[in-house]
Design a protein around this nucleic acid. Structure first.
Lengths: 195, 195
DNA sequence: GTTTTATCTGAACAAATGTTCAGTTAGCTT
DNA sequence: AAGCTAACTGAACATTTGTTCAGATAAAAC
């Protein structure tokens, strides 16, 4: 056999990335073999190399795409308003977006150690840029006297870490709805940076 | 060659666990081979099997030991006092303890997916018990009207997630001292659960 | 309908994996 | 000093790993 019926790179490519995303998130990058990914797509391992030069590139591309999507989604989301409204928007956006793409978020946070120095820096730059968005809001709020934090950089990291915690316990159809979770976290964040 | 000079299980055992801890934390469980651990100790791979029945048991034992140490250290730490003082004690304890054993903490949070169902439950029970300690303090505070949170369970998880975030950025000899970091986080936690 | 191009197979490769074990030597006991 | 036990080596094992590539077939272009 060789080329299979209905085969098309526009279909196989995304399916490979989707399978890799799910498997990397579930078992970890190092624990997943190229053959497992291929089997998930219904293809032989060799075929993957039409879509990625090697295994690590597959991981990096997934991370990079996620970080770019995240930044684009946030840029698209922003609403004008006072700093409090913008902080609330950030909190709700972050929770909702991260829960919708929990696999990608998980990978982007957990698999950094499997990256080469160069790739690590690329991804880390994206993350810092995202954190800077939140820190910018906090800085403004502090300048206006609406917020009070001892250190805006640390506060931004603390807030993001707190919000990311949702990933470890939230399940669809659980005790709390997505909106309830958002409101609950927003309540804590709001108070934590209050004057 | 066979038994080597100065070899003793009281020495080799701990060294194996220490090497495994460091390597698992740095590269991930699946990415570390038994031969790498052995090389780190200065021993052949086969010798490891005098100390563990298999690779996963090595991981589980490290996790279990960490969780037990954590619980014991907290039990040993507790001071009498009002709920606010006890919450502060928890925050400072958690930050300090986790930074001192960041490798173990990292592993206990990241490698759960490499466990069998049975082992997963064992470790997860420990974590829940630890989280319950914090939730207990929050519940008491809410009952007394000193704290106000919409949901003590979620609040406990949120606080712990926030504190764990320290691990991702804190470095010895950095801009902030350990005590400064503790105080900084305590400030945010205190406000986040305030009435 | 024929040629060209895109896509995949299937086999192969060397290297690395977790684990076992017979054999060997160091340390301890008597 | 002799015997016993604890600790380790070194080689072997069956699998699995990431990756390559010649060949085969489907889809697209002409």
């Amino acid at each position: 056999m060789a080329r299979t019926q209905g085969s098309h790179s526009d279909i196989t490519g995304p399916r490979i990335r989707a399978a890799a995303l799910e498997l990397f998130a579930r078992h970890g990058f190092a624990a997943v073999s190229m053959r497992q990914i291929a089997a998930h797509v219904g293809v032989q391992a060799g075929a993957l190399y039409n879509y990625t030069p090697d295994k690590q590139s597959l991981l990096v591309d997934l991370m990079q795409a996620h970080m770019e999507d995240l930044m684009a989604a946030w840029a698209n989301q922003q609403v004008a308003g006072d700093v409090v409204a913008r902080l609330e928007a950030f909190v709700r956006f972050h929770i909702r977006y991260n829960l919708e793409r929990s696999d990608a978020v998980f990978i982007a946070y957990m698999e950094l150690r499997n990256l080469t120095e160069e790739n690590f820096i690329r991804i880390e730059d994206h993350r810092r840029a995202y954190e800077d968005q939140l820190e910018g809001i906090l800085k403004e709020g502090v300048a206006e006297g609406v917020f009070q934090v001892p250190d805006t950089k640390i506060a931004a990291l603390a807030v993001i870490a707190m919000l990311n915690g949702v990933l470890t316990w939230y399940r669809d159809g659980g005790r709390l709805s997505l909106t309830e979770v958002e409101t609950l976290y927003w309540d804590m964040v709001r108070k934590s940076v209050a004057v």
